[in-house]
């Protein structure tokens, strides 16, 4: 065989491989039958047990059929702290690097079951040590809030701080993801203090800025201070280039303890090429904070 013919054969092999792979990948895999099978398999998952999509593009399909995947409280969870057991649904895999990041320092959970539902792969995972969320700051009912020492009144699920603005439980876009958090709609220079008393083993949370367009128009930072039982245990500055900045503080765990998170917001507005600094659109800080209780011997969610 001449050199030219060898090249031709190699090229035709490449074409054959690309065509065959194309037949496999250029087709729809998720259809109504797959979604029905998925709903049959996971429809009875108890509330509070997250069902996560391994691949982001699968999530909207899941949300059409599974109530647990469309639950705004779970969509907005940035990590798996406070979770004992969960399900993952995917097409090609049931574990990804995104899920590794969501472990937030916990050991990787054990896969206790695997299923198929149509073309979907489903895995059920359980952590060796169970956890539950004892208190979520985004649940405004259990949080006391002040803005520059001015008490904020709880009205219709949000804190009204008068001239000092509002503190609003919300689902916000931070670092291109939906995050359930307390949005701080406060004027420049305000320091917000959020207080609660909770029994738990650690305080886990995040601070970030919403939304995308505001982040383009401001780099304003906030200063965060964490006070446990009257003692400052953490102080740091967060900027939006950090995305969703995590924090974690150990709690005594032997009884209810006062937890306070203070956030100083020097500049809440954005910069506009024409008008300079403007209060709207706001470069809005948002706080996710949860008191997590570690359950002995696994426990139930």
């Amino acid at each position: 065989m001449t050199q030219r013919r060898r090249w031709l054969v190699a090229f035709l092999l490449l074409a054959a491989v690309e065509f065959a792979v194309g037949l496999w990948v250029h087709r729809r895999r998720i259809d109504d039958g797959d979604l029905d099978a998925l709903a049959d398999t996971l429809g009875e998952v108890p509330a509070g047990v997250p069902v996560l999509a391994a691949e982001a593009f699968v999530a909207p399909h899941l949300r059409t059929r599974l109530a647990s995947t469309a639950d705004l409280r779970w969509i907005g969870r940035p990590d798996l702290r406070g979770v004992t057991e969960f399900y993952v649904v995917g097409l090609a895999t049931t574990w990804t690097r995104t899920l590794d990041a969501m472990l937030a320092g916990r050991p990787r959970p054990e896969r206790i079951a695997s299923y198929r539902a149509g073309d979907f792969r489903i895995a059920r995972y359980r952590f060796a040590r169970g956890e539950r969320i004892a208190l979520d700051f985004a649940d405004a009912k259990v949080t006391d809030a002040r803005a520059d020492e001015h008490p904020c009144r709880l009205r219709s699920g949000r804190f009204d701080c008068g001239v000092f603005g509002r503190i609003v439980p919300t689902l916000a876009e931070i670092d291109y993801a939906p995050i359930r958090c307390l949005g701080l709609d406060v004027p420049d220079g305000t320091t917000v203090a959020l207080r609660a008393e909770a029994r738990g083993d650690l305080l886990r949370g995040h601070v970030g800025f919403s939304d995308f367009n505001a982040r383009l128009r401001s780099d304003g930072a906030v200063r965060v201070e964490i006070v446990i039982d009257g003692e400052t245990v953490g102080r740091f500055v967060v900027t939006d280039v950090e995305g969703l900045r995590p924090f974690e503080v150990a709690l005594p765990g032997d009884g209810p303890v006062p937890v306070e998170i203070r956030i100083a917001v020097p500049s809440a507005g954005t910069f506009d090429p024409k008008d300079g600094y403007v209060p709207r659109p706001a470069h809005r800080p948002c706080l996710d904070a949860r008191v997590v209780e570690i359950l002995d011997g696994g426990g139930s969610p």
Binding site: F57, T64, D71
Partner: peptide, 9 residues
Amino acid sequence: HARPTDVLS
């Protein structure tokens, strides 16, 4: 809610 009525893909 976050449930799409239709997903065009």
